[in-house]
Design a protein around this nucleic acid. Structure first.
Lengths: 248, 248
DNA sequence: ATTAAACACGCAATTAAACGCAAAATAAGT
DNA sequence: ACTTATTTTGCGTTTAATTGCGTGTTTAAT
């Protein structure tokens, strides 16, 4: 088996399971441990995965779990400040969850007058500090992992609203594969959020760029704004310079 | 399981719960106590948590779940422990918001298997720690004062469910006037919650007894359980000794 | 003071990683 | 096609990391 095939296979396993054991890969690909180790090392050098003792982890896995030590907070504040330029008085806005969105909420102007729909209790609680903001928490099953509401009931309610702007945190963004995710239910949810909104902005710290996960949410052409902490001219963003997408 | 996964899992527990017991982690991650201790030590060295005898504490106490300032906490814990005796495996339960209810949630047995509907995001977040509990957050307008969802949408959804038990925190309870409140919308809400549930338990610290507010929610005969921090024989409860009301 | 739980320390067993080297495979040039 | 240069791989060995257990000590609660 060619090295490149092995690497692809390893990346597939990682995207599929968020983690992989060296020993499993040895069996799966029937090569020696040394080879796997060398492969993992190489992929780690290319920033495609996170190497740990005993195996490797998905790079995006990192932040899906640690949601407290607010990872890359500086970057998220920069993103937040860019994002609020999209928000005008009187708008109806739909948001997902995640630390990036919460950072954004904290940066909102004191006297903003707007209506927010959200699937995240944390976002709702944070928004409650703004006297002129109307907050509607969309109810449904509560996801223990993502800490947002999800499921059919949420989807139904989303189909009844038509916000001006949808603000979405991301697990992964890729120039070709667009927005992807790992969880089926959250995937459905994000799809619906995107579809019901007039415009969509994706908030994405740069390390989540060029990553592609198992489940496809939407092609990049369905997104109108991409917001990262990088300057708009940064070469990392070159692959995203397409006409339908405005980079902030 | 990889060490980093363990660490993330531990941090997640801490961020959600603000505290964690070594023994719980041993069970949760099925490794020896030594391993957990070494993990905690490592995380403590990295300033990610405070290590204490028996477990560890969150380093950042800033969360909205800071319960160190909860008023009359001791009393509320007593109430909580009484309340959970009403909860059996398999039940469908509806809860309101408030610190008393949150204290109760924190006291629930680790392996409770039940379905909870709630109008409080805080309660939902806290319930999310219980692996076998299904949490449904009832969505709607989010009240800045009471930090619960309210309004027509909530009322509608309540009318579609029929929980076995409704757990209600109280603003005021009076032998003649029953359950009363000050806010019109919250009042409507509590009425509906009471009506849709098969039985209702009122959680009430003793200092809120014998108080009557402007708006009537329900007569005392509509309530099945009264839970206070007092012993059931306390003279303060004499006025509430009626046949339809069980005092815990 | 007594007792049980929690802890720290060292040890040994297991497992993973790193290193050097030679065989095998691949690519390149004649 | 044949040889040479380069890369890749597997093996043996060494080194490091991780874990669980036994033992004795500390801590907290009664």
């Amino acid at each position: 088996m060619l090295k490149k095939e092995r690497h692809d296979s390893i990346m597939r396993q990682i995207n599929l399971h968020n983690r992989v054991l060296t020993s499993d890969l040895v069996q799966l690909l029937s090569v020696s441990e040394d080879t796997i180790r060398r492969d993992l090392q190489e992929l780690a050098e290319r920033d495609q995965l996170y190497k740990v003792h005993g195996g490797a982890l998905s790079k995006s896995y990192q932040s899906s779990f640690d949601d407290s030590t607010v990872y890359a907070k500086e970057a998220k504040i920069i993103i937040a400040k860019k994002a609020i330029t999209l928000i005008k008085d009187g708008m109806v806005i739909l948001t997902g969850g995640g630390t990036t969105i919460i950072e954004m909420v904290k940066q909102l102007p004191e006297n903003l007058h707007a209506t927010f729909f959200t699937i995240s209790p944390f976002v709702a609680i944070e928004l409650a500090n703004y006297p002129r903001v109307e907050v509607i928490l969309i109810g449904g099953l509560f996801s223990k992992n993502s800490q947002v509401t999800y499921g059919g009931h949420v989807i139904n309610q989303l189909s009844e609203i038509s916000p001006d702007l949808c603000l979405l945190g991301t697990s992964a963004l890729h120039p070709n594969d667009g927005l992807t995710d790992t969880d089926w239910e959250i995937n459905q949810l994000k799809k619906t959020m995107l579809n019901c909104s007039k415009k969509t902005a994706v908030l994405c710290i740069s390390e989540k760029l060029n990553i592609s996960l198992r489940l496809k949410v939407a092609p990049i052409t369905n997104i109108q704004y991409l917001i990262t902490e990088l300057p708009t001219t940064d070469p990392q963003l070159d692959d995203y310079q397409i006409k339908s997408l405005q980079i902030l």
